[in-house]
Amino acid sequence: MTTVQARAAGPGRLGQLRAASPIIPFVVLLLIWAGIVAIFEPRTTTLPPIQRIANTAWSMISDGSLWTNILASLERLVYGAITGVVTGVVLGVIAGLNRRVAKFFEPLIMFFSGLSGIVWIPLAIAWLGIGRAMVIFVIWNSVFFLVFSNTMLGVQLVPRVLEDGVQTLGASRWHTILHVTIPGALPNMMAGIRAGLGFGWRALIAAELVGASSGLGHMIYSASQYLRSDIIITGCIVIGLMGMTLDRLVLHRLEMRTIARWGMVSDE
């Protein structure tokens, strides 16, 4: 729950109602869906009834195919995102520290940031063929540029005064970087990581749509070849839930433990 929701969810019945209110739009959506199915009786290939989705989901869970696809996608995401974050942070710090170099390469970075991820798919397929390597590359691409530019910006924004101050007290350059520059750049780094992962998640799905033989993106794409809308909708729901979980459980927690705890950003 965001802090706003926690505050709104006060004591008593009204507070409880407010806390539960996020469910309402979903419920309304389900009701509308059920209504459309009941009134218009669309083909199951166009809009399957909710029951069908539930059945399909259940069968995919029980025969393990859903899990296999989730794992395949997650594996690629983890590889791509971790390499992206690590390379982005390391190179971003290095670039940010050397201001003249950073200034020089700025236009290049900006150009590639707009190009990141999905646009690389054809070239990545030409280089790496379809499959895991290509997807991981595309994810890395999406995550890297965002993390890199935000880290570089964060490092550049650390007030000179703080670095100089620590150095007048005798700190070595390395010490300054570790204890002043990097913590100072942390809010921007975290924001970059969060945004980068958002784009990376989308790039994962897009890359799997066109160039993989397993994973969630591939699952929903091949389902469309057979007009299995029920599989597609199940897949989309899973994708949405996973994306949300990734953001809330992983990134939000990380932010809470680091920058929010140290009072560097106002939380939501």
């Binding site: 929701q5 996020p22 739009p25 979903f26 959506l29 929903i220 469309s224 839930l241 953001d247």
Partner: peptide, 22 residues
Amino acid sequence: ATAFEPFFRFLQNVSGIAWLPL
């Protein structure tokens, strides 16, 4: 607005690209 926030977040995480097959 508060009630709709998670709803929007969820839909946004099912990126438009995921709806392409449908």
